[in-house]
């Protein structure tokens, strides 16, 4: 089997679990929604702050909800020795990494769609360059899914590990947060030329961590308990 087919199998499995359990849809997406509301409480929409800081708030909300989705992605492997089953299936570690990252990315896209709609509606935001916004969202999502899956396997399992994931992941994704927020700002304000270097950075980040995951996941996957 080719790497891509194996990865698609793993991604399909994770998404099937999600389709049956609906944890992302019923818990994580609503959580992101309430975070979007909370920002409005904290920053007082009457003062007109929200449209200005909307890109940053959007990505913080996505990041917080993504942490939950990532914990979930490895929590499903913890029960019923599912991880051992996956390990014994003979699938390549790289394929497991790519598959899980794909499934996480698919859930993030759903999350971003809902939260993005909420932000546009509630924060009174006008998008002037859709191409920039969509491209940077795709690149940032790939980067988040790659780093998240890589650190997720390090931090999966026991309770103590789940509290570790945010501490491990958030400093590492600093460039994604900066790049995606700046690119979104450029896309909203109608200065798309400024966004390209940030999109370049996001793509570089995603490629870097996708390669790191493909190379290192096998070792981590075998060592994880």
């Amino acid at each position: 089997m080719s790497l891509v087919r194996e990865a698609l199998l793993v991604a399909g499995k994770d998404l099937r679990i999600e389709a049956r359990s609906r944890v992302t849809l019923a818990q994580i997406v609503p959580f992101g929604g309430i975070v979007v509301l909370l920002f409005a409480f904290a920053l007082d929409p009457a003062r007109g702050n929200l449209p200005r800081v909307a890109p940053g708030l959007f990505w913080v909300a996505v990041l917080l909800a993504a942490l939950m989705a990532l914990s979930r992605s490895f929590a499903v492997e913890a029960r019923n020795s599912a991880r051992d089953g996956l390990r014994l299936s003979g699938l390549d570690g790289s394929a497991v990494f790519l598959g899980k990252a794909m499934a996480v990315a698919a859930q993030l896209v759903a999350l971003e769609t809902v939260l993005g709609t909420l932000v546009v509606l509630l924060y009174d935001v006008h998008v002037s360059a859709w191409s920039v916004v969509l491209l940077s969202a795709v690149a940032a999502t790939a980067g988040l899914a790659a780093t998240g899956t890589l650190f997720g396997v390090l931090a999966a399992g026991s309770r103590r590990r789940e509290t570790l994931l945010p501490l491990l992941l958030l400093p590492v994704v600093t460039p994604v947060m900066l790049g995606a927020t700046r690119a979104f700002e450029a896309g909203l304000e109608g200065a798309p030329s400024e966004a390209w270097r940030w999109i370049g950075l996001l793509v570089l980040f995603a490629v870097l961590y996708l390669s790191a995951g493909v190379l290192a996941f096998d070792a981590l996957w075998e060592e994880a308990e």
């Binding site: 390090l154 400093p171 600093t174 900066l178 790049g179 290192a216």
Partner: peptide, 24 residues
Amino acid sequence: KRAAIAALIAFIDVPVVHFSVNWW
């Protein structure tokens, strides 16, 4: 093994962070 891989990931992250913060 886990710690060594994490250390290398942290190390490759430093220049990217520096780069992005610099631009910012």
